[in-house]
Design a protein around this nucleic acid. Structure first.
Lengths: 126, 126
DNA sequence: GCACTATATTCCTCATTGGTGATGAAGGGT
DNA sequence: ACCCTTCATCACCAATGAGGAATATAGTGC
């Protein structure tokens, strides 16, 4: 595997770790600082085993880390890049929707003009 | 599904489309401009059917678009955000490795100092 | 219309992923 | 030592995804 292949695999690993709605919810939940598994479970929902598994995926990807405090385990973001990435994707999605919206507006205006012209040509207005 | 859940799903969709080494290679290949499926196949390798399928995934995610020119179909990037995201992930990976490297360097220096001190205490230097 | 090329789709196989309930491990309180 | 709580892991299942061979579709040249 050449170096660039290896780099692409690593990038894919990180993106894969983020590419799940539940894990994104978890990351969002941790945006305000570290929280324990029960807190996260309360916010995200689902089963405790599932949350634990997703946290493990995020940890393996190097996006979060944890520390034990008595019975509780606290997780925190250790790679703020995750929020930059999410922002970038949101920006892209917003631009896409803006363009789509502009297209609809322009299309409707064009149709309205064409209809007005057709009315004029047929002696419309009565 | 509340709005934020829907947004997270959309973000996850985009990230999922990118979270595969083969598709990242394809995107990288298109960085220089549009190319036809045969070109992409030549660069990325694998089977024609596989490339076609991955292109379909990327198109569905709104990252690429295509136009037909005779027998050939040319694909191009329509969302430059993909490169921003990849850069972000690379930056994060690099920072991680830098930190790990610093840790190793510091650890070795500490060990060297401790060994020197131990030697000194035992009358070393003969 | 036929032959060829390029590309998309189908079908199949295998591996991976995501969810849950149950269980095991670790820590704390009594 | 026992009981409880918190959290990680196991076992299971269903769904999803990646790859390739075969096939279908579309375009071109003759």
């Amino acid at each position: 595997m050449v170096e660039s292949d290896e780099l692409l695999s690593k990038i894919a690993d990180v993106l894969k770790a983020m590419a799940d709605p539940t894990r994104l919810k978890i990351l969002h939940c941790l945006h305000g600082g570290e929280r324990c598994v029960s807190d996260i479970l309360g916010v995200v929902g689902g089963s405790q085993a599932n949350i634990s598994k997703h946290l493990s995926v995020l940890k393996r990807a190097g996006l979060v880390d944890c520390r034990r405090d008595g019975l509780n385990v606290f997780y925190r973001i250790i790679d703020d890049g995750v929020f930059t990435i999410c922002s970038n994707v949101c920006d892209s999605l917003e631009i896409r929707l803006d363009r789509a919206h502009q297209t609809v507006v322009a299309g409707r205006q064009e149709i309205a003009l064409q209809e007005a012209a057709a009315k004029e040509a047929s002696g419309g207005g009565s």
